[in-house]
Design a protein around this nucleic acid. Structure first.
Length: 468
RNA sequence: GCCCCCAUCGUCUAGCGGCCCAGGACGUCGCCCUCUCACGGCGAAAACGCCGGUUCGAAACCGGCUGGGGGCACCA
């Protein structure tokens, strides 16, 4: 239950698909503000569209929010279950003279819409001013809002400022359908009131709706919530975010190897700022988040910047934790693969060198692949090219040199440098063949760190195999 | 068509009348470090959409234009 006097925020998705980037950011802002103010963050599933709402989508929303680390207070409210209450309010609106029953036929509705297009006048049924005795019983009526025809409705928006709508442009929207089911417009207002919502932070696309919703609120004499309409997120090309760009399920980003903390940081900075701060861990965000910092213009989604922030948080993680994340990623990618404790130790040992070479867990996984199995790695084309007969000869000399050395990075390195001098080659002339034989690739963490991570036995196995 | 919102480097943004011939970050390009690739360090190119006002002074305030976006259902 909400503590009295504290803000009540809500996130109210309709379960017709997954939780995408835009929804995730809206949820994040609401959550942040609730946490910041000691308020309540509630969840409402707007499942009144029975055709399009699915249990899978509901699960996807819960999972998405959970991955994002956005925990909600109280039990989620399911809008469809509250239809009776919505009907009750629709009737109350009629009783108060702020709504009316309209018995228009399909043809009449068509005519009204055509007129609306032509004259730019809002839809108003002829039943608006008819008495109850004029009812035609063979047509199931809808209940429409009886909006004022003059004056203006003011939306006091904390993000967009004061926005005025002339009432003559606002039409008599349907509140209750002819089958007695409530429309979204009605349900939102009633639910927000019943849930005690004090702040409505939602997408910009609802700004026009706010004026209409306010008319219901005024009709019922309910308190106005604080509105904040956050600009939408656009794709990289500036067009509306679609499935082509980034309107992927938020968990798709987990699968692409992003950390949820990085995602939170990135999404926060998309449309909100605190001076020049770029790296804002969640704990800091909770301290700083405010409504004033929300920008007014739409932002484009940019994967490059997400990459960079993600790289930061990956490096920030301690090596043991990152190793755990990496192993989970590796095993998710190849479910039949089982990485044991030996591999964990190897990964942990190499992690320092590995993590500065990856921006995502997927890249980290790729860089770490040579550590997942025993035996000589398969060479890629470049690595095969590096392993010339001369290179193989150098590897053999290297093996002979280090055979009796303590297995320690700096010792191995200094002895290799001595060997290089003796052979009249550069350190790189030896290091590259070693790297190729050890990892199967031409790029990796420093070779001496690789030797240590692999351990003497495994390293020598790989070197001898590829030097042959 | 009608209603509404927005407008600073390629991108995210700082700026709330003088601190700005505009700052930070990502990206890009150089250089340094270096066994590879990265990380890191240093440096560079890069923006106030246009036109009018207001003001001693405008990126900031006002108006118009242009350009983006959103909304106009018995969808949410």
């Amino acid at each position: 239950m909400a503590k009295s006097g504290t803000p009540v925020l809500r996130f109210a998705p309709s379960p017709t698909g997954y939780l995408h980037i835009g929804g995730a950011r809206t949820a994040l802002f609401n959550w942040l503000y609730a946490r910041r103010t000691g308020g309540t963050f509630r969840l409402r599933i707007e499942d009144t569209d029975r055709q399009r709402s699915t249990p899978e989508a509901i699960a996807a929303i819960f999972n998405g929010l959970t991955w994002m680390g956005l925990d909600w207070d109280d039990e989620p409210v399911f809008q469809f279950a509250r239809a009776e209450r919505h009907r009750e309010i629709a009737e109350a609106m009629v009783a108060r003279g702020h709504a009316y029953r309209a018995y228009d036929t399909a043809e009449e509705l068509d005519a009204m819409r055509t007129r609306q297009k032509a004259e730019g006048k809002p839809v108003r049924s002829r039943w608006r001013d008819a008495g109850p005795n004029d009812a035609t019983p063979d047509i199931a009526p809808v209940i429409r809002l009886k909006g004022p025809t003059s004056g203006e409705t003011l939306v006091r928006d904390v993000v967009q400022g004061d926005v005025r709508f002339s009432n003559e442009n606002l039409d008599d929207m349907v509140l209750l359908r002819s089958d007695d089911t409530p429309t979204y417009m009605l349900a939102v207002v009633v639910d927000d009131f019943d849930m005690g919502v004090t702040h409505v932070l939602r997408g910009d696309d609802h700004l026009n709706n706010a004026a209409r919703q306010l008319q219901i609120i005024h009709g019922m004499g309910w308190p106005e919530p604080v509105y904040g309409h956050v600009p939408l997120i656009h794709g990289a090309d500036g067009a509306k975010l679609s499935k082509r760009h980034g309107a992927l399920a938020v968990e798709a980003y987990r699968d692409m190897g992003y950390l949820s903390e990085a995602m939170r940081n990135y999404l926060l900075r998309l449309g909100w700022s605190h001076g020049d701060e770029e790296i804002i861990p969640t704990a800091q965000a909770i301290e700083w988040f405010n409504l004033e910092g929300i920008g007014r213009s739409p932002a484009r989604f940019d994967l490059k910047k997400l990459d960079s922030i993600n790289a930061h948080y990956m490096r920030q993680l301690d090596e043991a934790a990152l190793t755990t994340e990496l192993m989970a990623t590796a095993e998710r990618l190849v479910p039949e693969r089982k990485l044991g404790e030996t591999i964990r130790a190897r990964l942990n040992s190499a992690m320092g060198g590995l993590k500065s070479r990856a921006k995502t867990l997927l890249e980290l996984n790729e860089a770490a692949e040579f550590l997942y199995a025993d035996g000589p790695p398969i060479l890629n084309a470049k690595a095969a090219q590096v392993l010339s007969p001369e290179a193989k000869a150098l590897i053999k000399k290297f093996i002979a040199t280090i055979e009796n050395l303590p297995w320690e990075s700096s010792e191995l390195e200094s002895q290799t440098k001595t060997l290089a001098e003796k052979e009249g080659v550069s350190l790189g002339d030896i290091a590259q063949p070693l790297r190729a034989a050890l990892t199967g690739k031409t790029t990796s963490p420093p070779v001496f760190d690789v030797l240590i991570a692999l351990g003497r036995e495994e390293a020598l196995t790989r070197l001898s195999a590829h030097a042959a």
